[in-house]
């Protein structure tokens, strides 16, 4: 467990180091995640001890959002005056994202299938 956790923390710190070094506008956690992914690619597999630590961290991922989420309590006034507008923004945006992604991918997949069929027919 300690080995796996140390690798994960090392990736996080390296992410922060690269962020500072190149002044990247990307959170350290995302860079750390990409570094760890790259490490798996280079090793052509997941080190079992790292997989074990990662499973432990991800099993209860939900609870980790709670302390920050409770911060909503301090936004009471804002929610009262803008709550409906906020909700509509999220709902409509989610609907549009869902539709556009689904339509674009289905179009591309069907077009590719047609091309493959045509090639097979020749």
């Amino acid at each position: 467990m300690l080995y796996g956790l140390s690798v994960v923390f090392l990736a996080l710190v390296s992410g922060e180091f690269l962020r500072q070094l190149f002044q990247l506008p990307i959170p350290a956690v995302v860079i750390g995640m990409l570094l760890l992914t790259a490490w798996c690619i280079v090793r052509r597999g997941v080190e079992p001890r790292v997989a074990y630590a990662s499973e432990g961290l991800l099993r209860y991922l939900g609870i980790l959002f709670v302390p920050a989420g409770v911060g909503l309590i301090e936004l009471g006034d804002k929610l009262k005056s803008q709550g409906i507008a906020m909700l509509l923004t999220i709902l409509i945006s989610t609907m549009v994202t869902l539709l556009v992604t689904g339509v674009v991918l289905q179009f591309l997949l069907l077009r590719r299938k047609e091309k493959l069929n045509q090639r097979a027919a020749k």
Partner: peptide, 27 residues
């Protein structure tokens, strides 16, 4: 909220390494 968050902060701090750990399912 400040009192609550000061207490619950260790939970919040695990969010960083947990995000990095998403690398495994991503890979």
């Amino acid at each position: 909220y400040a009192t609550y968050f000061a207490g619950a902060k260790p939970i919040h701090l695990l969010l960083g390494p947990a995000t990095v750990a998403l690398a495994i399912p991503l890979y």
